[in-house]
Design a protein around this nucleic acid. Sequence first.
RNA 1: GGAGAGAUGCUCGAGUGGUUGAAGAGGCACGCCUGGAAAGUGUGUAUACCUGUCAAAGGGUAUCCAGGGUUCGAAUCCCUGUCUCUCCGCCA
Length: 423
Amino acid sequence: MLPIQLFRQHKDLVLEGLKKKNFRDLDLVDKIIELDERRRHVQNENDTIAASVNAASKNIGQLMAKGDKEQAEQLKAEVAAHKEKAKELAQKLSELEAEQQDMIIRLPNLPHSSVPAGKTPEENEVVRIGGTTPNLDAQKLPHWELAAKYGLIDFELGNKLTGSGFPVYMGQGAKLQRALISYFLTYNIDAGYKEYYPPYMVNEASAYGTGQLPDKEGQMYHATADNFYLIPTAEVPVTNIYRDTIVTEAELPVKMTAYTPCFRREAGSYGKDVRGLNRLHQFDKVEIVQLAHPDRSYETLDSMVAHVEKLIQSLGLQYRILRLCGGDMSFTSALTYDFEVYGAAQERWLEVSSVSNFEMFQANRMKIRYKDSNGKTHLVHSLNGSSLALPRIMACLLENHQTPEGINIPEALGPYFGKDKIN
RNA sequence: GGAGAGAUGCUCGAGUGGUUGAAGAGGCACGCCUGGAAAGUGUGUAUACCUGUCAAAGGGUAUCCAGGGUUCGAAUCCCUGUCUCUCCGCCA
């Protein structure tokens, strides 16, 4: 949610940003500004009348204490006349506040100046490509066949237990999963991130805080009996740890990491995109989240990109980094880098991480602030990224490191997996 | 799931209708004291919005879990919800 001050002070920037993000309903901006003026006017009236009622009440109290009943009764009658008007204004004010909130909440975050214009994923900018494509022979297999060949994952069994998109990992497949989680977490912790193990379900307030609600409830599984949502990413519970808190400037940046499974309904997707591990309803992910000083959040973003890049490199995978164009960015993001890894058998790029700076968009919703040396509070900037999403990493590890003798496990995973080959 | 108790500021904790945004204590910050420290001592220490201003100071409104209600006036009374604790039941 954009701060209202931004509309009042920099309307042009708001409009420019919204256009870049391909937001259509630009009239909303003027409506918000107009509504804001009305709201302030009404608040002024409301405050004035409330002040007079308060003063009169105080007077009545003093008169009562003195025993001057007559005077008190007279004042009461006077106040009663104001009361109706006061109630009306208070009602009006809360209506206007709600209306304003409803409008602002519909506006996406503004893109950073470096975000390329564009509407579709094709217009994303390739920042760089790293790693190398393995030389696989003609017998190369896609990961779902490798998974079957080595008994790593049973997709059919998942269908039986739950439904499609809920694979069962087993044997060395399960172990590889566990090894990846441990490796990623340790890697993050070594870089100064504090590990958290959060709930897998969140309440409405949390889902609202990171921007899943309203509007995107269709993407989450909803436990209606208790009104909880299964988390679509660890970002939700982890960022909300700091909801409604004020930290000192010295505490920034706050660096957090967590492993969680992620649950996504992915309604409407089907076909070859969802083959094997490419798209699941439940998958594992290790997430990194930072709360940064507004002046330094882009340095933070760069450092997170470098951090994720190094992690992918250590797995010996070919990857590319994209800077998303305005139209392909998420609602809440100001700048997003996507990491894609090349699946050498499928011959497709697969997204394995998305590193974003949300600037103050989430912080404003969640009221995450810091206090500067003058004692003034400001919103922090929030950032997050995957490091990393497991299924597609596993898919690419299987595909890219396959040999006739088995699947080579990258050296970095040795301490966690305990073997250098799946066979 | 059943019964009961409770939710106050950074923390503890007082407060059952009238200058209570909130006593007291602790913590923290700054000053004094000191050769330096401790002790002592003084001051300060919530958030949002409105107003004001180049900034600020200042003024106003709201907030004592949340949302409603009673009242001229609510932290204090009533209703609903949430959460916590204790006991019982169940249970990995």
